[in-house]
């Protein structure tokens, strides 16, 4: 099961969250959920556009960073907010992600949030605690 929560007392100028998942896929989905919800209430965004994305990385930590950074890039390059994502992760000699990102161009009917500038490496951490994957991420706002 995937989940996330925002952290109150970390990097007070910005927004920090913790994401959890039992599998790498769930972790990447949970972290995307937190980022998406920071940008706009996903329930207020209709799935009118879909983007397909493929990424590779040498480890899961860098794959998560690249994945979240791509969402931030799409937000600006396509002037887009998101409602949900599908993710498939494969571990080979490297990590590979295939994703579908659904959302819409920005409309005044949506409940918009913060215009996230970047994913930071401050306190950035991905770990496995025996039963689940946990990530700490600080977003620059």
């Amino acid at each position: 099961m995937r989940s996330y929560c925002f952290l109150d007392n970390i990097a007070i100028a910005d927004i920090a969250f913790e994401a959890r998942g039992e599998t790498p896929e769930e972790l990447l989905l949970a972290a995307a959920d937190a980022l998406i919800a920071t940008i706009a209430n996903p329930c207020s965004v209709r799935p009118r556009q879909e983007h397909v994305l493929q990424l590779t990385s040498c480890d899961l930590s860098e794959l998560l960073f690249a994945w979240l950074s791509e969402l931030v890039f799409l937000k600006d390059a396509e002037a887009m907010v998101f409602c949900d994502t599908d993710v498939t992760v494969r571990e080979k000699s490297y990590w590979e992600l295939s994703a579908r990102i659904r959302g819409d161009s920005v409309q005044n009917t949506q409940q918009l949030g913060s215009d996230v500038k970047a994913i930071t490496k401050h306190m950035y951490d991905v770990s496995h605690n025996g039963s689940e994957w946990v990530a700490i991420v600080v977003l620059d706002i």
Binding site: I10, I12, I15
Partner: peptide, 11 residues
């Protein structure tokens, strides 16, 4: 300069 995080302020 901030004294409170964004998440705390919204609460």
């Amino acid at each position: 300069g901030r004294t409170m995080s964004r998440t705390a302020a919204k609460k």
